[in-house]
Amino acid sequence: MFKEIKKRFATDDVEVKRPDLYKVGIKYTRLFELVHMLRDEYEYKTLNAITCTDWIEEGHFALTYMLTTLDRKHTFMIQTMINREDAHAKTFSHEFKQAQIMERDLHEMYGIDFIGNENLKELSLENWIHTPPLRREFDTLEFVNNHLTFREGRDDNVDTKAETKRLRALKKAAKEAAKKAKEEAKAQKPKDEKIKEGGG
């Protein structure tokens, strides 16, 4: 099967993640062909999920389609890249009904336009006029500090990165202290055992 896909779709990006999970990365133009092939010839009949990853440095979104066959308990993961600016893709809602709401969710959170999907109304963010919140250029902390008021006395709405660094340092120090204590305990242990033996 891998060989056929490699040959037919001219891709080297194939990988066995787990015995029950294969991954293949292909160009967006060949996506429909591959999905149709998997569905019709290899009986991957269920579309589990459509996920999106924001690669802001490379300038594209990675869309991942998870296709599952329940007969063989096997999942096929198809990854494809689309352009980040003016992000759009064709809908899968005619092939798989469940794709409709998944695409609606992605449209809400990333602003990807799925052409052909009849209903891309927002699911949980009503009347949202700002940047879609899961795009990485959306700064959550800045948004919260600009738009919402905090009760006085709450000081932890500070820079998360510095805060994480501080917490990590604390954690590290605690870990080292624990290590030290352990070593000391180890050093003491033989003595204790000797005492025990003497006592016996």
Binding site: L125, P133, F138, T140, V144, F150
Partner: peptide, 8 residues
């Protein structure tokens, strides 16, 4: 506290 979608 840092959620964009929750009032404080």
């Amino acid at each position: 506290w840092d959620s964009y979608n929750t009032i404080k």
